[in-house]
């Protein structure tokens, strides 16, 4: 898969979410500069929305920062996986690469065959980052300038992207299908039970299902061949 082709769906999926963030930020009486800094420095979708909600409830910075740490901690596990996949030339850029590890970037990168080169990683991350930052600004300045039906349907792009990435793997390996379904089921149950903080249902899914899966993964599994 080429990096531009991989970046486009992320771009399309991030724009409507970023616009929504910009609109909401303006509603929270945040300045344009602060809205820009939020998206440019934090670069983590869900946690930015949560931060705005918490600001509105009057929560102080310490509580919001702690919540952000909890919500975004899943990326620790995603980075752990990616760190085993980057090639030796990409290692010089790991401070930059680490900044751009979002759910969707991780998903696209992890199913790319072979070792990951710095150009592939950075192009995908730039597509995601530029969509997120420019979308936030556009939302703040222009408001809901895209027709509502279009932004609603563009939101589906991220789910479609994840499905399109995993399909070829599911076709090749029944084990992958089992992992995906088991994880989705566990996540649904955990969300319904509603006792974990936001972002932690996926961490529990990764820890539990990947641990269970590690007993069954064989030497000739999908990524082993390409490494």
């Amino acid at each position: 898969m080429n990096a531009f082709k991989a970046g486009i769906p992320i771009f399309i999926g991030y724009v409507p979410a970023a616009i929504a963030f910009g609109i909401l930020a303006k509603g929270c009486s945040i300045t344009l500069m602060e809205c820009f800094l939020f998206s440019a420095a934090v670069f983590a979708g869900a946690s930015q929305f949560i931060a705005l909600n918490l600001l509105m409830t009057g929560m102080g910075p310490a509580g919001i920062i702690l919540t952000t740490l909890l919500v975004n901690f899943r990326h620790f596990l995603m980075s752990a996986y990616l760190s085993t996949r980057i090639d030796k030339f990409a290692k010089k850029y790991l401070f930059l690469i680490a900044f751009g590890v979002t759910d969707e970037v991780f998903s696209v990168l992890s199913f790319q065959k072979g070792q990951l080169s710095k150009s592939f990683i950075l192009i995908v991350q730039f597509a995601a980052y530029s969509a997120w930052v420019s979308g936030s600004m556009a939302g703040f300045i222009l408001g809901g300038f895209l027709p509502e039906l279009l932004t609603k349907s563009m939101g589906v792009a991220l789910y479609s992207l994840l499905l399109a990435i995993i399909l070829p793997e599911v076709k090749k390996s029944f084990k992958i299908l089992l992992l995906v379904i088991a994880s989705g089921l566990l996540n649904t149950i955990l969300i319904k039970l509603d006792f974990l903080p936001n972002g932690w249902t996926i961490i529990v899914c990764i820890l539990v299902i990947s641990f269970a899966g590690s007993f069954f993964i064989t030497q000739n599994s999908h990524q082993e061949e390409s490494l």
Partner: peptide
């Protein structure tokens, strides 16, 4: 670690 991508995408 190898299980993480499929598991993360499922969730």
């Amino acid at each position: 670690l190898k299980c993480i991508p499929a598991v993360a995408i499922g969730a």
